[in-house]
Design a protein around this nucleic acid. Structure first.
Lengths: 145, 145
DNA sequence: CTGCCATGGTTGCACAACCCAACCACCTCG
DNA sequence: CGAGGTGGTTGGGTTGTGCAACCATGGCAG
């Protein structure tokens, strides 16, 4: 496969994935939207962060994050803690309930992925994972699509 | 990287990608939404197909496709042709304008991708592309997310 | 030929997730 | 102490979607 073709393919396949992802989002886990799930996941991974951080990481408008967080808080999945050093800031943390729900959804999602990736070799899985990390890590100007 | 971790990583990174994709969609090409672009692309690739085919391929509701197609037709990018064999069916085709717009958008998207993937080796690009194709090709029950 | 169900497509309705702009509160620095 | 920047919320409007109801046509059994 030539480089140009590979770039083309990556572009197209990533787009197809994004399309299907959007289409399927929320259907698997009515109790937690894709957005909410993703935000919860980031909170767990980061061990608590600010709304602005979430917005930056996912290239979302801060207002969008604000509303999502409001919903998550109302659902009792996250809590806001004041930041002693900067009174503008609210540090977001998962609650116990948030951790439970997240773990549960993660598990069922993982099961679906595992099934999908069942016949991949360990080496292929590892390489694929590294490529994705590398791709997402690149700061790319055009946040792609 | 252990297999379980790899699966986990792939899951998370694909999701991050999907989130950013959605976030960035349409910002690069205001004249053509991500959805519309994807549908046009599929039409070109398939050389004409039915609304139902598009819906099935992207796991979209037929009503959604119907509306998107209506918009594309109004914009003069696709045309509906009656199917002689089945009068219920309308076969969708790109118009000349549709082909031009698609080519133009594809090119600028490709440029963005190329830049993002600039420092990848040809081998890595090729492997990454293959992995993505393989992933998307798997019929996976849970259309993942 | 005549019903009856399946299929392709459209429309009404409601909703989730977005973005932008305006705004408030607070921090920082000259 | 202002002036400008940053974190966060709210108001308003748009888009993409799904579901359900509906119409028209096709296919098939009696």
């Amino acid at each position: 496969m030539h480089t140009a073709d590979a770039v083309e393919t990556i572009q197209r396949e990533m787009t197809v994935f994004a399309r299907r992802a959007r289409a399927a989002a929320g259907r698997m886990h009515p109790e937690l939207s894709l957005v909410s799930y993703t935000l919860l996941g980031h909170l767990e991974e980061s061990g608590g962060c600010r709304s602005t951080d979430l917005a930056a990481h996912y290239a979302l408008d801060k207002s969008t994050v604000s509303r999502q967080v409001t919903g998550l808080e109302r659902a009792g999945l996250v809590e806001r803690r004041p930041d002693a050093a900067d009174h503008r800031v609210q540090v977001l943390h998962l609650t116990g309930a948030g951790q439970r729900i997240l773990a549960q959804v993660t598990e069922s999602r993982r099961a679906a992925f595992r099934e999908r990736l069942a016949d991949w070799s360990a080496e292929d899985l590892s390489r694929f994972a590294h490529y994705l990390v590398r791709y997402n890590a690149s700061p790319g100007p055009g946040r792609q699509d």
